Structure formats: C-alpha cells, structure tokens
Amino acid sequence: MYKDTNKRSIAKGISWRVFATTTTVIIIYVFFGRLDLALAAGIIETFAKVALYWAHERAWVKVRWGRKRIDPFNLWFTGLPLSGKTTIADKVYTELEKLQIPIERIDSKDIRELIPDIGFSRDDRNRHMHRIGNLIKTLQKNSISTVASFVSPYKESRRAIREMVKNNVVVYVKADIETCKKRDYKGAYAKALSGEYKNFSGVNDVYEEPTYAEIVVDTDKLSVDESAQIIVKYIKKNYVK
C-alpha cells in the first residue's frame, strides 16, 4: 500500500494550481485580447481559490456525515498446520486492503524468520504469543488493524491474545488432519511422524481445538474464496461502520 508524502501532495497541489490558473489566463486573453486583464484575473483567482479551498476543507472537517469509523481489530487465524490459515488470511488481507482499512499482515513464518531462535515447546510458544500480542497492541494504538495467522495450539496462549488486544476475532480454520497431510507438499507431517520434527501440533504435540471462535471455516468443505468471503462479510458488518 502506498501513501502520498507531504512533498508529493504539495507538488500535486502546486502543479494543479499552475495548470488551472494558466487555463484561466488563456481563456480570458482569447476572449478579451488583453494580457493585463488575463494576468490580473489569474492572480486574483489563484488567491481566491486557495482561500476558498482552505475554508471549504475546514468546514468539512467538522462534518461527521459520510465518514467511516473503523475500530482497530485483530483477526486471529488458528488451526492445524496446513489447514489453510495462511492462504485464507492472505486473501482476507487483500480484500480488506481494498476497503482502505489501515491494516497489517502478521504470519508465523515471517516472524520466525525475523526471530529464528524461537522454540516449539509449550513455554516457548506461549512466550512467543505474548510477543505477538504486544506487537498487535502497539499497532492498534496507532489505529492499525491486523490479520494474524499462527497455529497457536494452546488454549492459554489464545486466551492471552484475547485479553491483550482489542476486538479480537478468532478464526478457527478447521480441517481434518488427513486433509492437512495431503496438502503437505514440504513433507512436514512425514518428518513429524518419523520423529525428525518434535512438538509438531497434531502429531507429537497437541492442538487444543478452540471451544469458542467468532468464525469457523471448514476447509474440507469450503474453498479459499468462500472462506474469505465469510470472514470479510463479518468484518464489514461489525467493524466497518
């Protein structure tokens, strides 16, 4: 997502004002044949339009009609490895960006690449979830919503996230473990079953299924687009006002 800098906005404003004033000068000169009159009109118009535009904008600042109020929210995707969390979360993030919502995407893979020494024990994962919770809190203080996707297999860590952040929306991406194995093109499940990977959720470590989630999408039955549509519809209904 790109945002105009102040310098770019100023440059655009000046270029438009020069273009508009030049057009006015040319039109008056063509009709009246007097350069002095055309230049005078151009100068007067420039200052008048700047003053009127400023007054117009100041007035609209006080008008609340037509504004969208968007409270920062956190979409927390949880589910077994290869259940479809990242794919659906990416799709949802793209769709929410189109609504011009200030939003950031947080994925477990990206975070672990930044902090490679994170372990996979229960304590390690719970500490890691607290780090992510603090990151989301910081973003929310700046009115930025988040789309976060983590296996987050333990109830206590998901509870901690819910307590730490505002407007937490748990999305349980449900999938049968056999389905997840079929999607595993990197062979992670096979390595976990062979003992090469330890603490692998759903194989040699638990995945504690959420007892409550605002949204449940069953990827054995729903496509990525169908799942994303359900989630985006929920956000539009509850947070884009």
Rank of each mutant, 00 (worst) to 15 (best):
L80M: 08
L80H: 00
L80D: 03
P81F: 06
P81E: 07
P81V: 00
P81K: 01
L82K: 05
S83M: 07
G84Q: 02
G84R: 01
G84H: 01
G84I: 07
K85Q: 07
K85C: 06
K85N: 10
K85Y: 10
K85H: 13
K85F: 07
T86W: 13
T86M: 06
T86A: 09
T86P: 07
T86D: 09
T87F: 11
T87W: 02
T87E: 03
I88Y: 08
I88A: 00
A89C: 05
A89H: 05
A89M: 03
A89F: 04
A89V: 01
D90W: 03
D90M: 08
D90Q: 15
D90Y: 02
K91Y: 05
K91M: 04
V92A: 07
V92M: 04
V92R: 06
T94P: 13
E95L: 15
E95T: 09
E95R: 13
L96C: 01
L96A: 01
L96F: 00
L96E: 01
L96D: 01
E97K: 09
E97P: 13
L99D: 12
L99Q: 11
Q100M: 14
I101K: 07
I101T: 00
I101A: 02
P102F: 10
P102I: 07
P102L: 06
P102E: 14
P102V: 14
I103E: 11
I103C: 04
E104M: 08
E104C: 15
E104L: 12
R105G: 01
R105N: 02
R105Y: 12
I106G: 00
I106F: 02
I106L: 11
I106E: 04
I106P: 00
I106T: 11
I106N: 02
D107L: 06
D107E: 10
D107Y: 06
D107A: 10
D107C: 06
S108G: 04
S108R: 14
S108W: 06
S108E: 09
K109N: 13
K109D: 15
K109V: 15
K109T: 15
K109A: 14
K109R: 10
D110I: 15
D110L: 10
D110H: 15
D110G: 14
D110F: 12
I111M: 14
I111S: 06
R112C: 05
R112L: 01
R112N: 11
R112G: 03
E113A: 13
E113F: 12
E113C: 05
L114V: 08
L114M: 12
L114S: 10
L114Q: 09
I115M: 02
I115Q: 04
I115A: 14
I115D: 07
I115L: 13
I115Y: 06
P116F: 11
D117M: 08
G119R: 13
G119V: 05
F120Y: 15
F120G: 01
S121H: 02
S121K: 06
S121Y: 04
S121T: 14
S121F: 09
S121M: 03
R122D: 12
R122H: 08
D123I: 13
D123P: 03
D123C: 10
D123E: 15
D123T: 08
D123M: 11
D124I: 00
D124M: 02
D124Q: 01
D124K: 12
D124A: 06
R125D: 05
R125I: 08
R125A: 05
R125E: 02
R125Y: 12
R125P: 00
N126W: 09
N126M: 09
N126F: 08
N126D: 13
R127E: 13
R127V: 07
